[in-house]
C-alpha cells in the first residue's frame, strides 16, 4: 500500500515538474516571435565576460553612393549612410573622438577634419556615417553651397526646401537629409549645414 502511495507521489511530482517546465518553456516560446531590437539582444545574450557593448543593426546603405548626400574632401567622397574608411586619410588630417554612451551600450566615432571645419560622426559600433556637419565657410557641400550663402542662393542650387521651422530648412535625398540653419532670418544667411541619416 505504501509503495503505491510512493509511486503516486513520484507521478504527481513528475507531473508538477513537467507542467512547471512546460509552462516556463511555453512562456519563453510565446515571447520568441516578438520583434526585438539590437539592445534587447544585447541584454538577453549578454556574455558577462565579453561586456555589454552590442552590435549595431545599422549597416551601409548599398545605394548611398548614388542616392545620398555626400561631401568630397581631398577627392574622397564621404557619404551619409556610406562607409567611412579613415585609412584613406593621413592621420594628421583629422582628429577622432570616441563617443561613449551610458553603460557601454555603443561607441560612436566623431572625426574632426581641417581643424574642426567639418565633422563626421558614425553610428555606434560601425563605420557607417550618420552625420556630417560643416562648421565654417572653408568647406562646401558637393553642390557648392557653403556657410554664408543666402537661402536664395541655396534654393537656386537645391530647389524649394521643406521648412522645419522659421530658420531650419530641409532637403531629402535617398536615405539622407540635408539641413540648413539660418540663425538670423532677417539676413537669410546660412549659419550651419548638417547632413543626417534617415536610418534612425
Amino acid at each position: 500500500m505504501e509503495d503505491i502511495f510512493a509511486m503516486k507521489n513520484i507521478k504527481v511530482a513528475a507531473i508538477i515538474m513537467s507542467l512547471c517546465m512546460a509552462g516556463a518553456a511555453l512562456c519563453a516560446c510565446n515571447n520568441q516571435p516578438e520583434p526585438v531590437s539590437s539592445d534587447i539582444n544585447v541584454i538577453s545574450s549578454q556574455n558577462q565576460n565579453q561586456g555589454g557593448a552590442g552590435e549595431s543593426n545599422i549597416s551601409v546603405d548599398p545605394n548611398a553612393a548614388d542616392n545620398n548626400f555626400k561631401i568630397t574632401y581631398k577627392g574622397i567622397d564621404i557619404t551619409v549612410n556610406g562607409e567611412l574608411d579613415d585609412s584613406k586619410f593621413d592621420d594628421n588630417e583629422y582628429d577622432v573622438r570616441e563617443q561613449t554612451s551610458c553603460a557601454g551600450q555603443g561607441l560612436a566615432l566623431v572625426y574632426s577634419f581641417k581643424g574642426g571645419s567639418f565633422e563626421v560622426e558614425t553610428f555606434p559600433d560601425t563605420t557607417v556615417v550618420s552625420r556630417i556637419k560643416l562648421n565654417d565657410d572653408t568647406v562646401a557641400t558637393a553642390e557648392g553651397v557653403y556657410i554664408g550663402n543666402t537661402m536664395d542662393q541655396v534654393k537656386a542650387v537645391y530647389g524649394e526646401p521643406t521648412a522645419l521651422s522659421e530658420n531650419i530648412f530641409s532637403y531629402k535625398k535617398g536615405s539622407s537629409e540635408l539641413r540648413l540653419f539660418v540663425e538670423d532670418p532677417a539676413d537669410g544667411k546660412v549659419s550651419s549645414i548638417e547632413y543626417f541619416s534617415d536610418l534612425v
Binding site: 566623431v110 574632426s112 574642426g116 556637419k133 548638417e194
Partner: peptide
C-alpha cells in the same frame, strides 16, 4: 579630451 564635437541643431 582632444576636442569637443559640435552638437547637431
Amino acid at each position: 579630451q582632444t576636442f569637443i564635437p559640435s552638437m547637431p541643431h
